[in-house]
Amino acid sequence: MMSVTNAFKKALALAELGLPVFPCAASKRPTCPHGFQDASRDVGAVRALWRAHPGPLVGVPTGKATGIFVVDVDTAKHDTAADWLKRHTQDLPETRSHRTQSGGLHLLFKHRSGMRNTQAKLALGVDTRGDGGYVLWWPAVIDHGHHNAPLAELPAWLAEALMPPPPETRPTVQRPRTPEAAKAKIEGIVGTVAAAREGQRNSLAYWGACRLAELVKQTVITQGDAVALAVEAARQAGLPTKEAHRTVASAFRGQQ
């Protein structure tokens, strides 16, 4: 772990480059009272921060404050994160990346308006940091494993996966009038999810589970059957089993 003195020196250098910084403890928590909101690119203010609230790590706000959006891929702790990165490597543009202390990876992109923090929305172990968040600036601590390319635009498919259409914009499923109509409705929902293209899988899996949950409320289908169909459709679309279960469970909770 870096000493407080070395962290302070690195923080000053980053501030001089125009990056707002603030001190963090070894626990990764901010040491200053207002967290990332205390971040500053003013050298004098940075000196005062470290003097009053010393910390061995350097934090940097994400989102509008810096124009940085970060995808945190914790490959060291989660196989699902490693699988996600392997599946999407060819779809990710060259951009700046930082190796983390635990062996994970931060992928840095240009921030896009409206992008906030998420946890495990893309996959278990894949979090994001945008407006209202911060990351530790690992190049201040670790000298290797970093790629200093310019920040790339956030890929459209990734933004879409993180910002699905609001649930209220989706039409409510009308109760089918006959068993045949019910069967056709269910098959239509399941088929739409199963045929989802990359970049649509999470949002359509959530949508389909919501629609099936509505049919459960209408006693058209049992919840057990609806969950099983929703998970299987998400798996056919290409989502890992755990991710499919998590997305479907989230949708059903939202319909309660």
Rank of each mutant, 00 (worst) to 15 (best):
S3G: 09
T5M: 12
N6W: 04
N6F: 08
N6T: 12
K9G: 10
A13G: 10
E16A: 11
L17Y: 00
A26D: 06
K28D: 06
C32E: 00
G35W: 04
G35V: 03
G35M: 07
F36I: 06
D38Y: 00
V43D: 04
V43S: 14
V46P: 00
L49A: 04
R51G: 02
G55P: 08
V58S: 08
V58R: 10
G59M: 03
G59T: 08
K64S: 13
G67Y: 13
D72W: 06
D74E: 09
T75A: 02
T75K: 05
H78I: 09
T89D: 15
H98S: 08
Q101T: 14
S102Y: 04
G104W: 01
L105V: 12
H106R: 10
K110S: 11
K110W: 05
M115K: 09
R116H: 13
R116C: 10
R116W: 05
N117M: 01
Q119I: 13
A120E: 12
A120S: 15
V126C: 01
V126K: 03
D127Q: 05
T128G: 05
G132C: 08
G133L: 08
Y134A: 01
W138Y: 14
W138D: 03
W138C: 05
P139L: 12
P139H: 10
V141I: 09
V141S: 06
I142P: 01
G145M: 08
H146D: 13
N148Y: 08
N148S: 14
P155S: 00
E160W: 05
E160S: 13
A161I: 01
L162I: 08
M163W: 02
M163D: 12
R175N: 02
P176L: 03
P176T: 03
R177N: 07
T178R: 02
A181M: 14
A184W: 06
K185Y: 00
E187D: 14
G188L: 10
G191K: 04
V193I: 14
A194K: 08
A196C: 13
A196R: 10
A196Y: 08
R197E: 15
R197G: 15
L204N: 00
A205M: 04
G208M: 06
G208N: 08
E214Q: 14
L215D: 09
V216L: 04
Q218T: 07
Q218G: 11
T219S: 13
I221H: 02
D225F: 01
V227N: 00
A228C: 00
A234R: 05
R235K: 15
A237V: 07
P240Q: 08
K242T: 07
K242E: 07
K242F: 04
A244F: 00
A244W: 04
A249V: 00
S250C: 03
A251S: 12
A251K: 01
A251Q: 09
F252Y: 11
R253M: 15
G254R: 13
